[in-house]
Amino acid sequence: MLAQFLQFLFSGITVGATYALAALGFTLIYNASQVINFAQGEFIMLGGMLTVFFLASGLPLPFAVILAIVLPAIVGLLIEKFAIEPAKGAETVSLIIITIGAALVIRGLIQVWLGKGTHALPPFSGNEPIHVLGATLLPQSLWVLGVSALVMVALWFFFNRTLFGKAMLATSYNRLAADLVGIDTKHVLTVSFALSGALGALGGILIAPITFTSYDVGIMLGLKGFVAAVVGGLGNGLGAVVGGLLVGIIEALAAGYLSSAYKDAVPFLLILLILFFMPRGLFGAKVTERV
């Protein structure tokens, strides 16, 4: 009983950490620009697929990983520079459509370049499961959780203790005011996109040994990351992390106890419920829209 529950919990927390990273990516961009980047999922896909590619072409794992983080960050930067910036001031609907377009381009290019196959990444440190109270935990899960936790701490430090991080936060609170006190808000926007590209890719790399990867995993993972961000209260960093873990756990429990076929539907059911009953998410603040 307990063993089974723990088993589901472990796998839930593991994928949940990936969702949390994606959700943080959404949050970063949303705070900097009020844009929802529907291409976030493609960063996750890029992370996994690029690592697979670089490993296959003979690079050692650490280099492959670094490249697979840096390239998606550059992609994020390019999206911001060439797609978001030129469309400044467009309606929400238009911005959503632009990022969806970017997602399709990325996905299509990877499909053409690396094919439609499904790939597994070797685990970073062996495959010998660890036994905990009758449940098994993959070493890769520890990698996922450990690295994610580190990244979250680093992000916290960045936003609360460094000048540039604080500037980014200030921009998210009030763009105009930030502009006026001399913060280069355009720069903030670019960095947000690059950073969320890197975060997404990192999640994709960490999870690839467990869930496999292919050119088309981005949509689902990205959407779930978005669900996580909304569950936590769009724009809230802590909310994104909690939301990610929650979505992962609920999904794993539902898959285990209810129906594995409907596993992918669970987050979307969850989001519909959240939007119906607590539209500001778990941590969102109440605001009265200005008229």
Binding site: I98, G101, L104, V105, G108
Partner: peptide, 10 residues
Amino acid sequence: ETVAFGAILM
């Protein structure tokens, strides 16, 4: 096809 659709949208 996918690339074209995406590019057209953007």
